[in-house]
């Protein structure tokens, strides 16, 4: 690597490290909502949790290129773990959160080997199959999970023994916000690290990645496990803040919805999940106020149009618009340092 390349690489990494103004705006807005939108805390809590869940999918889809139709398996496992733990052992939320994270990470680690085996369609079907099997288990183990009736009687103790959950969802929202923010910081660190960069190499060209000595399988197993843990924690947050778990957390439509949100928000920059969740829930709110039953038609239409226009082109258009606002030249799509 000659000095010129070294300088380019260093500048590239430094650019990635620096927090952009919009990032501050996003998190400050999320924080300000605690005081500014007191009547919307319940829905904001849901958006934050769904956003975290979508971000976990972004880690594997946007960075490692693994498409999953069954990501709700981990979300569901986390939710059930946290719920059952609260009923049977103790209502301490942080312990439950950690346990849910570990449980989902374990499942993610084990199933990652199945996912690695296949390519493309087989991979999609395996992820879908894992979620279906898990959903069926949750459905059948009625004594443990409550089956189709859902898990009732989840009571959560105050966080750190001090902050009690209230019915307006204020504590819930702040709790989800803090947890999501901390996890986001870790994820942000992770994707900029050499590990994260090697994932992108794998996404763009697995063959070349392994040719330059990247242990492709090990990297994919690692990120799949991390993403599973994130999804599990998101599920646990939902279980704890709503104090209820139903089969819905693991259903096929949840896996599909989260994929939609991520795609609407855009993949590969971590905020896509949050943005997508916000847009998705917002649309759901608006559209279902005039056609309560048929709002899926419009979300389907949006999806079809989105794909027909092209996701890349759409993201590029947004990025160009933002750059123009700041008076900078438009970005080129997917610039790779040193790749000529």
């Amino acid at each position: 690597m000659n000095p010129e390349h070294r300088r380019i690489a260093a500048k590239y990494l430094a650019d990635k490290w620096r927090w952009k103004p919009l990032e501050y705006v996003f998190w400050l807005a999320a924080l300000a909502a605690v005081w500014l939108l007191p009547s919307h805390h319940l829905i904001l809590n849901e958006i934050m949790i769904t956003g975290l869940f979508a971000m976990s999918l972004d880690l594997i889809l946007g960075y490692a290129g693994i498409a999953s139709l069954g990501h709700a398996a981990f979300f569901g496992l986390g939710a059930y773990t946290a719920g059952i733990f609260a009923i049977r052992v103790t209502g301490d939320p942080l312990l439950g959160l950690a346990l849910a994270g570990f449980a989902s990470a374990g499942l993610g680690f084990v199933t990652s080997f199945l996912v690695l085996r296949g390519v493309d369609l087989a991979r999609l079907m395996v992820t879908l199959g894992v979620a279906l099997v898990l959903g069926e288990i949750a459905n059948q183990l009625t004594w443990l999970t409550g089956g189709a009736d859902g898990l009732q009687g989840v009571t959560i103790a105050p966080i750190l023994g001090k902050f009690e959950f209230d019915i307006f969802g204020r504590t819930a929202y702040v709790y989800s916000l803090i947890v999501s923010f901390l996890l986001f910081l870790i994820a942000r660190r992770l994707v900029i690290s050499p590990f994260g960069l090697s994932l992108r190499t794998i996404r763009d060209n697995p063959l070349r990645a392994s040719a330059i000595g990247t242990p492709v399988d090990r990297r994919l197993i690692a990120i799949y496990t991390v993403a599973a843990a994130y999804a599990g924690i998101a599920g646990a947050l939902l279980a704890q803040t709503t104090q209820f778990v139903s089969l819905d957390v693991i259903a096929l439509h949840r896996s599909a919805d989260v994929l939609l949100m991520l795609v609407i928000g855009g993949t590969g920059y971590l905020y896509g999940g949050f943005v997508g969740a916000l847009i998705f829930k917002g649309l759901q709110d608006v559209i279902s106020s005039w056609t309560p039953q048929y709002w899926t038609f419009w979300i389907g239409l949006i999806l079809v149009i989105l794909v027909l226009i092209g996701r890349d082109r759409m993201n590029l258009a947004v990025a160009t618009g933002l750059a123009r606002l700041r008076g900078k030249p438009a970005p080129r799509p997917r610039t790779i340092v040193g790749d000529r």
Binding site: L61, A67, L69, D120, L121, L124, A256, L259, L260, V263, Q293, Y294, W295, T296, F297, I299, G300, L301, I302, L303, V304, L306, V307, L308, R311
Partner: peptide
């Protein structure tokens, strides 16, 4: 010639639309 993910998303969109339309 698009990636499978695009095809999956597109056809899921079609499913959503058809379900709502038939329901309507």
């Amino acid at each position: 010639n698009r990636p499978h993910l695009d095809q999956v998303l597109f056809t899921i969109g079609l499913i959503f639309m058809s379900i709502a339309a038939v329901d309507y």
